[in-house]
C-alpha cells in the first residue's frame, strides 16, 4: 500500500469502528447501523465491479445475478436441506465461481457493447430462473425462513455483530484489492484497459486475466449475496434483477470508476440515499438514478467522490499554507 492509502485506511477503520457506537447512542438514527450493514454488503459487490470495470475495463451487467446465485444457494441449502449456513455459503461460492467461469470464457472474448449485452442477457436469464423454479426458490413470492449466519453453536445475531462482521469483510477485501491493483496483476489490468493489443504483445495473457478478474468479481458478489440472505433471512428475485446490476455500476461510477475507496463511499452514499433520504420520493428513485448516472458518465467520468476529495485536499493545502 502506498502512504496515502495507509492514511485513508486508518481514517476508514476509525470511522467504521466508531460509527455504531456513536449512532447507537442517538435514538433518531440508531437504525443507521442496519443501513450500514446493507451498505457494507453492497460494497463487497461494488469493490469487485470496480476491479473489473475500473481497472480491467470490462463491463458487467450481471453482478446482481451473481449476487443472486450466492444468495439463493445459501437460502435453498439452509431452508430445504437444513445445511449449516457457513457450508451453504461456501457452496454458493463454488457454484458462482463455476458459472462465472463458464459465462466468462466465451463472453470476455467479446468487445465492449457485445460484452455488455451478453452479461445483461445472462443476468436476465438468472432472474427468470429465480422466478420460475418456484419449488426451489419460492418464485416471485420469495423464499422465507433462511437461517442466520453461524459456525457451530456460535451464531451472529446482534446488529453489532453483523455490522462488525460485514465491515471486517469489507476492510479485508479492500486491503486485498488495494494490494492487488498496486502489483503486477493490477498493472496487467490497467494495461488491458488501455490497450489490449499492446498488453498482449508485452506478454500479458489478456483473456486469462479478464476471465480471472470476472470470476473474482463474481465471487465477491456471491459472498455478498450469501451474507445478504443470512442477514435478511428472506429472498425474492426482485433484489437481483437488472435494476440492481445497474445500481452497482452507478455505485462504482459515483465513486470514480477507477477508485476503490470511491466505490465504497459511493455505495454507502447511494444506500443511504435509497433507504433513507429518498425514501419519500420512492416513485422518483429510478428517474433520479438514471439522471445521476447520465450526468456522471457524461461530465464527471472521474466520479463525484474523486472530484470532491481532490477539491477538499486542495482547499486544505491552501488553507494550511
Amino acid at each position: 500500500m502506498r502512504k496515502k492509502d495507509r492514511i485513508v485506511f486508518l481514517f476508514f477503520s476509525l470511522f467504521v469502528g466508531l460509527f455504531p457506537l456513536v449512532v447507537a447512542s442517538i435514538k433518531a438514527v440508531s437504525h443507521y447501523i442496519d443501513v450500514m450493514i446493507f451498505a457494507g454488503i453492497f460494497s463487497l459487490v461494488s469493490i469487485g465491479l470496480c476491479l473489473l470495470m475500473g481497472y480491467a475495463g470490462q463491463i458487467s451487467l450481471a453482478q446482481a445475478a451473481f449476487m443472486g446465485i450466492g444468495a439463493y444457494c445459501s437460502g435453498i441449502l439452509t431452508t430445504h436441506y437444513g445445511w449449516p449456513s457457513s457450508l451453504a455459503l461456501m457452496v454458493g461460492l463454488v457454484v458462482t465461481g463455476v458459472v462465472a467461469y463458464g459465462v466468462g470464457v466465451p463472453s470476455l472474448k467479446l468487445k465492449g457493447h457485445y460484452l455488455a449485452m451478453a452479461t445483461l442477457g445472462f443476468g436476465m436469464i438468472v432472474h427468470i430462473v429465480l422466478n420460475e423454479e418456484v419449488e426451489l426458490t419460492g418464485g416471485p413470492s420469495g423464499l422465507v425462513g433462511i437461517s442466520g449466519l453461524g459456525i457451530g453453536n456460535f451464531q451472529i445475531s446482534s446488529p453489532f455483530a453483523w455490522y462488525y462482521l460485514v465491515w471486517g469483510c469489507v476492510a479485508t477485501v479492500m486491503l486485498f484489492s488495494l494490494n492487488l491493483v498496486r502489483s503486477r496483476i493490477g498493472r496487467a489490468f490497467l494495461a488491458i484497459h488501455a490497450d489490449e493489443r499492446a498488453a498482449q504483445a508485452m506478454g500479458v495473457d489478456v483473456s486469462n486475466y479478464k476471465v480471472k478478474v470476472f470470476v473474482l468479481s463474481a465471487l465477491l458478489a456471491s459472498f455478498a449475496g450469501s451474507l445478504y440472505a443470512h442477514y435478511v433471512e428472506f429472498l425474492n428475485p426482485g433484489s437481483f434483477g437488472l435494476m440492481w446490476s445497474i445500481k452497482f455500476v452507478l455505485m462504482v461510477m459515483v465513486g470514480g470508476i477507477q477508485n476503490l475507496w470511491g466505490a465504497v463511499i459511493g455505495t454507502v452514499f447511494l444506500t443511504f440515499l435509497s433507504n433513507e433520504w429518498l425514501h419519500f420520493l420512492a416513485d422518483f428513485e429510478v428517474l433520479i438514478y438514471g439522471l445521476i448516472l447520465l450526468v456522471i458518465a457524461m461530465f464527471i467520468p472521474q466520479g463525484l467522490v474523486t472530484v470532491v476529495a481532490t477539491k477538499l485536499l486542495k482547499k486544505g493545502l491552501r488553507d494550511g499554507a
Partner: peptide
C-alpha cells in the same frame, strides 16, 4: 466505449423512470 455504453443505459433508465412517474 465503456462510457458510451453507460450513457445509453443511463438514458434508458431516465426514460423508464419518467414513464413510471
Amino acid at each position: 466505449v465503456l462510457s458510451l455504453i453507460i450513457i445509453t443505459i443511463a438514458f434508458s433508465i431516465v426514460l423508464k423512470g419518467s414513464a413510471m412517474l
